Amino acid sequence: MPRAFVAPEETVVMSKIRTPRLPHLIAALFCAGASLPVLPADGHGHDAKPAAAKKAVAEAPAASAAETKPAKPAARAEPPQDPMDKLRERLAEKLGATKAAPSNPNVVRVAARASAEPEHAPAAATAAAHAARPAAPKARAVVSHDAPAGHAAHWSYEGAGGPSGWGAMKPEFAKCSTGTRQSPIDIREGIKVQLDPVQFDYRPSGFRVIDNGHTVQVNVAAGNSIEVMGRRYDLLQFHFHRPSEERIDGKQFDMVAHLVHKDAEGRLAVVAVLLDRGSAQPIVQTVWNNLPLEKGDEVPAKGSLDLNALLPPERSYFTYMGSLTTPPCSEGVLWMVMKQPVSISQEQIAIFSRLYPMNARPIQSASGRLIKESN
């Protein structure tokens, strides 16, 4: 015989239950915990109306009676309702069924919905249904490496991570776009004055070479320093840019070496040595000989460097206040640009170009800052 089947979640099953099969259905309902009146044993009470069926209807639970609104007093008495009709109506309520077509009163149509919510379900029932459902997994934030936000933001010299977008990548990069003393600049109209020479105290030192993803950088052992304007600055590292970031009266050079120093109070001073095409430069060649095979690897060199050999013979310079030329573009950096360039061979330029064809920040506005030039 056909059985009424309640489907899993979100499945709708339509079944027809005819009154000759009601005893089997009621037995199934009792197994499911439904509370229904007892039917006659033969299940054919539709025509007979035995006393047992009338008694079952009369003793229906109070909660079910409360669901049925009391009939309004009518002008004339209505004929008593068939107990089997009442039973079918209550069965329909229990199963969420719809009434059969008037032409066939013995058919009850049942639509079982295991998880669907009725359109006008009571608020309490709807809330309980939502509470029973498993919580939906939270969406994970994806972060794109090209996006100007978060720890994945990666600055570069072109494309989405280029200099025009540095200031928006991270809050700590804001000075790259809002600063008023940014570097590099085109050095023009310097005021010629008697500047104290920079006192270089460089000596042969151990060093390590690293390709940090933006340039080739040389980390130098302690013991090298400069003294300028009454302050002593210790050398931390030097690195290269191609072409030169600084310009002098509009002229740009093939490369530049930036020697970064810091004093005891954390203030920075950078000496820029301009590199122009000519003969080979021995310090540059020593660095190239120790280039790491992978970016991010720091290679300790066996020999030592004497950075006096990187400086020009003539030590006159330009000086002004500026910033770092890479993020976070911190300002308050003392700059000293050597006026005389140092030669570097075409082969040495080509080696660096294979790693970094261009890693120079564009020229920034001088913003009316004072530039001094030694006589």
Rank of each mutant, 00 (worst) to 15 (best):
A56V: 00
V57M: 14
E59Q: 15
A60L: 15
A60W: 08
A62L: 15
A62I: 12
A66I: 07
E67T: 09
K69H: 13
A71Y: 03
A71S: 14
P73E: 09
A74S: 12
A74F: 05
R76G: 01
A77N: 07
E78S: 06
P79M: 04
Q81V: 14
D82Q: 06
E93W: 08
L95Q: 01
G96Y: 09
A97F: 11
T98C: 12
P102E: 14
S103Q: 12
A112S: 15
R113H: 14
R113Y: 06
A116Q: 12
A116K: 07
P118C: 05
H120G: 04
H120L: 11
A121P: 09
A121N: 05
A123K: 15
A125F: 04
T126V: 10
A128I: 01
A128N: 07
H130V: 04
H130G: 01
P134G: 05
P134L: 04
K138W: 03
S144Q: 14
H145E: 10
A147V: 01
A147E: 12
P148T: 05
P148S: 01
A149Y: 14
G150I: 01
G150W: 04
G150M: 02
H151E: 14
H154L: 08
W155T: 03
Y157D: 03
E158K: 13
E158G: 13
A160P: 13
A160I: 01
P163L: 07
S164Y: 03
S164C: 06
G165H: 11
G165T: 07
G167K: 00
G167N: 03
A168Y: 04
A168M: 08
M169L: 01
K170Q: 13
K170R: 15
A174L: 08
S177C: 05
S177R: 10
S177D: 04
T178H: 06
R181H: 13
Q182T: 08
Q182G: 00
S183G: 09
S183M: 05
D186K: 04
D186N: 15
D186A: 03
R188M: 00
R188N: 05
E189K: 13
I191E: 15
